[in-house]
């Protein structure tokens, strides 16, 4: 209920913001000079893959600088929310514990090894994800809790929605390499990165088709049996 409520609030905020931005656009009438890439991610059978990570690394041209945001990975009802995150190298991550019980968040992943010992509330300091790569998060107390973070060396990234669609926008003219990633998907089943040359107003659409079905990434951790 709490999550639903928060989502609803988010949508309202977003709607308000985009309405305001729409109004601003009409007044200023800024011409659109940025390219964008529409991406569809599917698995065998043409089924849409939600929550897949897509990102573009710049081969030539200038990446539009985006401010590094501070992001949160919450613990709610003994689950990490969101389950899958993508962020730029150098992003600070907060781990607010919304549960009454304590959690003990850790990662053994080489890209970021850390632990926040038994805590309630919001830990004092965020964790800076300072190297690119995959990070798997767990809780030392609750073995079912798991979350995935992909840290990328680019500010251009997105996650697919329920229909398996994502848009990388705000791109300047240049050459890009587009990647797709999903937790637990073996490298052999991941489609190869796609190179694209874009002029300032291009808006191509591409599809990434996985060679294998995705497994529920929230499933039990393979390394820890009962």
């Amino acid at each position: 209920m709490e999550i639903k409520h928060r989502l609803a609030k988010n949508y309202t905020m977003r709607a308000l913001r985009s309405a305001r931005m729409g109004l601003a656009a009409m007044i200023v009438a800024t011409p659109s000079i940025a390219a964008q890439i529409s991406i569809q991610v599917t698995e065998p059978g043409g089924v849409a893959v939600a929550e897949a990570v897509v990102y573009a690394s710049v081969i030539s041209g200038t990446a539009l600088a985006k401010p590094k945001r501070e992001v949160s990975i919450e613990q709610v009802n003994k689950e990490f929310i969101p389950l899958i995150s993508v962020m730029q190298t150098g992003t600070s991550v907060n781990f607010p514990n919304r549960d009454k019980v304590r959690h003990h968040v850790y990662s053994f992943s080489p890209a970021k090894t850390f632990e926040i010992k038994l805590y309630s509330g919001v830990p004092g300091k965020p964790i800076v994800f300072d190297k690119p790569g995959e990070v798997v998060l767990g809780c030392n107390i609750h073995d079912g809790m798991i979350a995935y973070v992909l840290v990328v060396d680019t500010p251009i990234f997105a996650k697919t929605d329920k229909r398996g669609a994502a848009v990388l926008d705000g791109l300047s003219a240049g050459e890009y390499e587009i990647h797709v990633w999903y937790p637990g998907m073996p490298a052999s089943a991941l489609p190869a990165p796609r190179k694209l040359k874009l002029s300032a107003t291009d808006a191509p659409a591409i599809t990434f088709a996985f060679n294998a079905k995705t497994q529920n990434p929230a499933g039990p951790k393979p390394s820890q049996g009962k």
Binding site: N140, H142, D143, G144, M145, G225, K226
Partner: peptide
């Protein structure tokens, strides 16, 4: 004990 790592 809900969701607790019982082995640990």
């Amino acid at each position: 004990f809900d969701k607790v790592d019982l082995k640990k």
